[in-house]
């Protein structure tokens, strides 16, 4: 367990690392990374039962970043959590590095559970892992983070149906519901609303939270941990580019790279000391 002040600090540190790396390496998808930073912070610093010294332990909780384009956030949080040393990130984005825009195959980097980047793959894989836990009588839990744009993919809903039929209560999907996808508002492109009702109608223990409120995220995850008859869906209302005033809810930051001056301003807003 971790107190909320420390969690807040970790989330701000994580935001800054993501922004600084984007500037230094030219890596895009900053808005998508910042919208799930608080979710990742609560998961990795509070909820997931992980031992970075034993990344392949059979009983570990599994986390799959199904919206793989937020890998820049995952790479940083795994380093902060101790899965590898910060020095491993030194060649980020260079030729020959494994750190780029999407998570590599698990064989390439400790802490990665699935190579994602093609959307709609993480939830089926996570369901397979959750069912394997039941078959092998292992107590681990599986959390899959998907984007709201990703919910356009039919495979997400195929997995939702099978998970409900199998009562896979050790499976949790978190939707990073920032209301944007690559080229516009999610609702106008694929009519995703009412999203939480869809998950409920599919037979999931569905709830909505403020995806930037650490205490609320913790409560939702604890509700998942206590649910024994259904899979859980946490629809997290988030803001793309959250935490930096000039990036918030501006979809240009899906692809834009921050300048040196913008990194400096973000650093001041995030209260990161030099």
């Amino acid at each position: 367990m971790i107190d909320l002040n420390t969690l807040n600090l970790r989330a701000r540190q994580l935001r800054y690392r993501i922004i600084e790396t984007s500037h230094r390496t030219g890596t895009p998808h900053l808005g998508s990374c910042l919208s799930c930073t608080d979710l990742l912070s609560v998961l990795y610093f509070d909820f997931l039962r992980l031992d970075p010294s034993q990344p392949a332990a059979s009983g570990r909780d599994r986390f799959i970043l199904s919206k793989g384009h937020a890998a820049p956030a995952l790479f940083q949080v795994l380093a902060m959590r101790g899965f590898y040393d910060d020095s491993r990130l030194s060649d980020y984005g260079q030729n020959g590095s494994i750190f780029a825009e999407h998570p590599p195959s698990p064989a390439c980097l400790p802490g990665i559970e699935a190579a994602t980047g093609s959307l709609g793959h993480g939830l089926p894989i996570g369901l397979g892992m959750a069912l394997a836990a039941r078959i092998q009588a292992l107590p681990y839990r599986v959390v899959v983070l998907v984007g709201d744009g990703e919910c356009n993919e039919g495979s997400v809903w195929e997995a939702a149906l099978l998970a409900a039929a199998q009562r896979a209560s050790n499976l949790c999907v978190i939707v990073d519901f920032n209301k944007w996808q690559a080229t516009g508002r999610s609702q106008t492109i694929m009519a995703m609303d009412p999203l939480v009702d869809k998950w409920a109608a599919f037979g999931w223990n569905a709830m909505e939270v403020d995806g930037h409120d650490h205490a609320a995220i913790k409560d939702a995850l604890n509700c998942f941990a206590g649910t024994t008859d259904r899979p859980t869906a946490i629809v997290a209302h988030t803001v793309k580019g959250s935490g930096v005033s000039f990036m918030q809810d501006d979809n240009n930051w899906h692809y834009r790279i921050p300048s040196e001056e913008e990194v400096r301003r973000a650093r001041a807003e995030l209260r990161i000391e030099a």
Partner: peptide, 26 residues
């Protein structure tokens, strides 16, 4: 019962589920 799972008429999901199972030792 641990040896059989009807995944329904949803083949894309079935392949993903199989991958997750295989990555977990099955």
């Amino acid at each position: 019962s641990r040896h059989f799972l009807n995944c329904g008429i949803a083949e894309a999901n079935m392949i993903g589920v199989a991958a997750g199972m295989a990555m977990s030792g099955l």
